[in-house]
Each structure stands twice: as C-alpha cells, then as structure tokens.
Computed example of a mutant assay.
Amino acid sequence: MANLKEIRNRITSIKSTMQITSAMKMVSAAKLKKAQDAITAMRPYSSKLTELLQNLSATLDGDSGGAYATQREVSKVLMVVVTSNRGLCGGFNSSITKEVVRTIQHKYQNVTVDLLTIGKKGGDVLGKTYNIIEKRNEIFEDLTFNNVALIAKKLMEMYVDGTYDKIELVYNQFKNAATQIPQIEQYLPIKPIEISENVSVNSDYIFEPSKEEIVEALIPKALKTQLYKALRDSFASEHGARMTAMHKATDNARDLRNELLLTYNKARQAAITNEILEIVGGAEALKN
C-alpha cells in the first residue's frame, strides 16, 4: 500500500502542475492577442516611414544621413540584447544569448564589444562573460514609445560622440505563436540606401522645408521607431513562446498523469487480488 500512496501523491502533484501550466497558458494567450495586435498595427507605419525616408534620401546628393550615417572603422561595438524578464518560455531567451555569443566569437573577434541588455534573463546569462554597460529591465513594465525613445536617444548620442562605431539590435522577430526568428539588425550607422537601375524614384515634388531638413528630422524618428518595433516584436514573441511552452507542458503532464493512473489501477488491482487470495487461503486452512 505504501507504493499505492506514493503513486497517489505523484498524481496529485502532477494535477497541481497541470493547473498551473494551463493557467499560465491562458494568461499568455490573452497577453499575446494584445501584443500581436500592437505589432501588426505598427508594422505598416514603420514600413511606410522607412520607404518615405528612402525615397527622400535617394534624391539627395552626398551623405543624406548626416552624423547617423557616418561610416567609421569599427573598433568598438555595442549590442542591444532584447530578452525577457521571466522564464518558462521555451528557447526564447537561449536562442538570443546563443546568437550573441556566436556573433561575438565569429564576427567581432578583434573588436571590443559591450552590451546593453533589455530583459533580465539575457543580462543574467551574458553578464557572466561580457561587459554590460547598462540594464534596462524595467522597460517591459511600461512599454510605450516615449519610454523607448529615451533609450534610442541615448544610443544615438553614444554613436554620434564616437563612444561606439557600430550599434546592433539582437531580438526575436514575431512570426506566429509557435515561431520566433532571432534577428541581428544594424541600428547605427544607417545602412547606405541601394537604388537599383531598374527602380525609379519619384522626386517630382515641392518640399517645404527643404528635403535635407525633412530627412534630418525623419532620421531620429525612424531610429526611435525601429527600436520600438524591435521591442514590440520581442514582447509579442515572448508571450507566443510562453503560450506554446505551457501548452506543451500541460500536454506532457496530462500524458504522465494518465500513465500514473494506469500504473495505480494495475497496482491497486494486484493488491486487491492478493488480499482475496489471502482470504481464500485462510478460509481453506480453517476447513482443514
């Protein structure tokens, strides 16, 4: 019977785990819907802003990006690593940390690399090996454009004053609830715009103020939007990954519970059979 009691305790424990993972799955599903709507609504705006900036820049002579497009010899790189503050989301965080390590080891072997982490999990893992200049774990508690713009402004200042020669974003791009794609995206300097010979740029417009002034005003806004979109992508990806992980955990717990119930019923049946045999054996002994 001790064995039966042990199995009963395990079944009770697994049922409790199932309730927790199922509740976490439902919470993540609700948060995912809101986060997915936000990133879906933002992508057309971000895409159109980039298109507008490219069309304007393509009609200008020389370096249209000003200080933000100045190409320098790369000796110091800043990587902005976006992870989550909480775990239980499958390989969401590990895929980003592995991508950072792989990039540093293969791409920036002879370059000084610093990190700015957004999300506690990435900072905890990477901080053991690499230099982290700042941790902004609080940003996901109030993920608004104005709060993200403050970080973007600081990144732009560090690039312009020469603190870093290159800045990259590392984050998970949201595709769907089950798929998140690790991305390494050049943030600064702004990549030169490539115009194909087969693509014509419509420049038959009158600009007020000048095109140069418009581009100068658009670039900081586009950079802030780019960072905000990356964080929104990561935020939606996190909830999608957690929902999927909790769904799998619930299914695995259910399968284990069913196996234990089968084992328990077999053990209980065997115990009852043994008791019957003992009773029958005792009755036969009394007759004799």
Rank of each mutant, 00 (worst) to 15 (best):
S47I: 01
S47Q: 09
K48H: 05
K48C: 05
L49H: 02
T50S: 15
T50E: 04
E51A: 02
E51Q: 04
E51R: 08
Q54R: 03
N55C: 09
S57W: 00
T59D: 12
T59G: 11
L60S: 08
D61L: 13
D63R: 15
D63H: 02
G65T: 05
A67V: 15
Y68F: 15
A69K: 11
A69W: 01
A69I: 09
T70P: 06
T70E: 14
R72Y: 12
E73G: 14
E73T: 13
E73C: 14
K76T: 03
K76H: 15
V77G: 03
M79Q: 12
M79C: 07
V80L: 12
V82M: 13
T83C: 14
T83I: 14
N85L: 05
R86E: 14
L88F: 15
L88I: 15
C89L: 14
C89A: 15
G90P: 15
G91A: 13
F92D: 03
N93P: 10
N93Q: 10
N93K: 12
S94R: 11
S94D: 05
S95T: 09
T97H: 01
K98T: 15
K98A: 12
E99T: 13
E99F: 03
V100S: 04
V100Q: 07
R102I: 09
T103Q: 07
I104S: 02
Q105E: 11
Y108F: 12
Y108R: 12
Y108C: 09
Y108S: 04
Q109W: 05
N110A: 08
N110W: 10
N110R: 13
V111S: 06
T112Q: 00
V113E: 09
D114G: 06
L116K: 02
T117K: 05
T117E: 04
I118P: 04
I118D: 00
G119T: 00
G119E: 07
K120D: 08
K121N: 13
K121A: 06
G122D: 10
G122C: 06
G122V: 13
G123E: 05
G123I: 05
V125Q: 03
V125F: 03
L126E: 02
L126A: 06
K128Y: 04
T129H: 01
T129A: 05
Y130A: 02
N131P: 03
I132F: 00
I133D: 07
I133T: 12
E134Q: 11
E134T: 11
K135N: 13
R136H: 09
E138D: 11
I139P: 07
I139T: 08
